[in-house]
Design a protein around this nucleic acid. Structure first.
Lengths: 212, 212
DNA sequence: AAAATCAGTATTGGATACAATTATGATATC
DNA sequence: GATATCATAATTGTATCCAATACTGATTTT
């Protein structure tokens, strides 16, 4: 074994619960009981609580005092804020990455797009969506900026799933992604940023219409 | 008692530890041992771990798999990202709040400035600093946006303390704050945004010079 | 009848004991 | 002498038990 990074149980079930949420097992407003969830996942309540706290950071659950955790109710104001912030921060990341992209970066981005082609599972689609964007932003070498952007993306994911837009407009999203990637490969920075901005605007717009 | 919101122990000691960190009890790179900290604060390790996780969200500590928590090493790249993001997001919040400010909002902001006048404790100065900015942004009624901005402010706080700029330039910062507040009271949006942006730029600049 | 009160129950937060992982240092090996 | 290996200790993560809080529904009170 080359790299054996031990993963803690809490981290592992965090991803499991994230998938459960994004795949629609739980609905907005629904409470998450610790005992039920922990025995369902086969762990004790201790790591579960850590997992819930992690998910709360990303806005996928809400934790209230002694009252427990629940899936948050997403409203238009929240999604508007999320996309407006992404619209400010992601172009900065893309611009910072420009000139540092390697063939490998583009290949990673393309792999994510290919993998998303036939995918149905919302949780997996969200992962691949981030993989694509991350591949284009990572060469900026600005981990703090990327970290915030990733948080916003994770929070957006729940909103997108609820609006069912992530599964309802896969071909549109794919086309936008391909166009963005092509602009990056061409080395046309302004075109790429324009494509990215338009992509975010369209995603937000289609969410509000609620293709559900 | 009008409002009796029960606070969990974890939340309480989160603030205590935050103060310890910002007041320089721990230094960058220094590890935080769970048993030592928990007995020092008079609680068990269970709520302490929750507190550490909360602080990790705000970037005040780093938690690494089975290896423990430590105060992160702040570098120039990180502070640059933090301030560049704030420079994009905070003007948006201020503009959104414009036209919704009440006398009470301005009073709150002024109280924070007055309280900061003779204050020495870095942790308290950070709190008051945020109270001031929050008072001016809150009328925007955009909790999601404000939440992200607050996170960035908390992360900046550690960087500022380490650079000692938060205690080294109190009079400069105070003057900038007063100017910003006056522009808001005058209802001059562009002036206010300009003052805010300049304030952030100066804070960042003085940090890099390292008045330490 | 509506509202307040007060059991009892359900659920979360915290303390303690235990298991898993990592760090340390001495010994062996080349 | 440097490096590898193994046992030991130090530290973190997890399970379980207990305490504190919130919820529920019936009863009382106005």
């Amino acid at each position: 074994m080359i790299s054996d990074t031990k993963k803690t149980q809490a981290q592992a079930i965090t991803e499991e619960i994230r998938a459960l949420i994004l795949n629609g097992t739980f609905h907005p407003g629904e409470p998450l009981r610790q005992e039920a969830l922990s025995e369902q996942l086969g762990v004790s309540r201790t790591p579960l609580r850590h997992a819930l706290q992690s998910l709360a950071e990303d806005g996928l659950v809400e934790m209230i005092g002694f009252k427990g955790a629940r899936i948050p109710l997403i409203d238009q104001a929240m999604t508007r804020d999320l996309f407006e912030m992404r619209l400010l921060l992601e172009p900065l990341a893309l611009r910072s990455a420009f000139g540092h992209h390697t063939k490998l970066d583009f290949a990673k981005a393309e792999m994510a797009l290919d993998a998303a082609e036939g995918e149905q599972k919302p949780s997996r689609l969200s992962e691949l969506n981030w993989e694509f964007h991350h591949a284009l932003y990572a060469p900026s070498n600005r981990p703090t900026l990327l970290n915030t952007i990733q948080q916003l993306n994770k929070a957006s994911a729940l909103a997108e799933v609820i609006a069912t837009s992530i599964v309802a407009r896969p071909e549109k999203s794919a086309a936008e992604h391909r166009g963005l990637l092509q602009a990056c490969r061409n080395g046309n920075e302004d075109d790429a940023v324009a494509a990215l901005s338009e992509h975010l605007r369209l995603a937000h717009h289609d969410m509000q219409n609620g293709t559900k």
